[in-house]
Design a protein around this nucleic acid. Sequence first.
DNA 1: TAGGATTTGTGCGTATGTATT
DNA 2: TAATACATACGCACAAATCCT
Lengths: 218, 218
Amino acid sequence: MAHAMTEASERFQRLYVTLRDRICLLDYPPGSKLGEEALAEEFGTSRTPLRRVLARLEDEGLVESRHGIGTLVTDVDLREMAQTYELRLELAQMAGRLSPQPVTFDVLHAMLDLVSRGEALQQAPDARSFARLSMDFHDFGLSLTRNMPLRDMADRLYYRTARVWLKAIPQLDLGHECAIFLDELRQTQVALEAGDLQAAALIRRAHISMSLKRLSGF
Amino acid sequence: MAHAMTEASERFQRLYVTLRDRICLLDYPPGSKLGEEALAEEFGTSRTPLRRVLARLEDEGLVESRHGIGTLVTDVDLREMAQTYELRLELAQMAGRLSPQPVTFDVLHAMLDLVSRGEALQQAPDARSFARLSMDFHDFGLSLTRNMPLRDMADRLYYRTARVWLKAIPQLDLGHECAIFLDELRQTQVALEAGDLQAAALIRRAHISMSLKRLSGF
DNA sequence: TAGGATTTGTGCGTATGTATT
DNA sequence: TAATACATACGCACAAATCCT
């Protein structure tokens, strides 16, 4: 970072991540109303800093503020999701090619941690834990490139459609999804142990593609 | 658009584009101070709607607001520009592959218009006109894909570094740059007349790459 | 070192728009 | 149709931070 975090920007970041995660974990399902007054009270601020956060969420397409109505959580339709996934496929693969990060011991350790969480998840399948692990794996994948604009773009796209999987889970086989995910984690671990970032990126690409295919059944 | 533009969102869009273009055309060079009060007065509003615009420009990395100091136009260093260009290369090529727009008469007509502007530019080289034509050609290129997330991402990246060319122009041969640009426009015209979007995208990619190479001399 | 000038950040009252009764 | 309730958009006054004298 170029400049130290001020108190205001720290609070902004905290509120932003909190609300974004709540939206993506369906704590606020599509159509929910996020009242400025209520949220301001919950976080112990006035409406002003909160509106700054909602404005950013609106720029990113997660909510939509309408004068006289309220700030509503958006929905994601299949067409938009398909376009986003199309792009994410390419970006995921790129992350292994552009400015690759060297595979250090820390990287491998983080990967191992993700694998064990995946194993625990398969023992006790749970949609919410799955979604959290998926988010963390996404972040991990991005940490493998040093191209910051690429990270930012991939991040935006991921959080834009992350909800769809959770929304569709009642119509999927959760145990099967967990098994597939654990496979991906293990394959990625092998690729990283071989120091092959491109392979890891291709595995990610393949799984995003298959995930879209399974979701497109609806 | 899902909903009609309200008066507020229209004003937001107008102010946003105005300020963004001023920054990218170096009317506000890096380091300039954008005073909230002064801008609010110029546009005939209060600080509140203006701060919403500055907040977005800050999210996109074009300005940086610091408490007690002011809102300053950011600078672009070579490392960041290289990363952004690296990504823009890929996105430009993708625009010809993902959800391609059919090449209609209107598209060809718009292209022809760009070519004649390029010809006029070569007759009377001028840095500012060059920059404007470059912006419009960028927009035109994005209109060739229907993948909206791709458009958004490419847009962000373009405007993030568009200033660098103008900043470097004193050290370049303006007439030469205009000639190269006109070549690109004509090659693109040929590709579009053949209905070959991928070729058009590859030409764009090639020219972005060469442009980076010329700029990297500094 | 202190104090004043300047600028962004915050809090809150009011205006405006929408839906419902 | 009119009135009422309620939510976001706006404008202003003040707090907090920084810089310069």
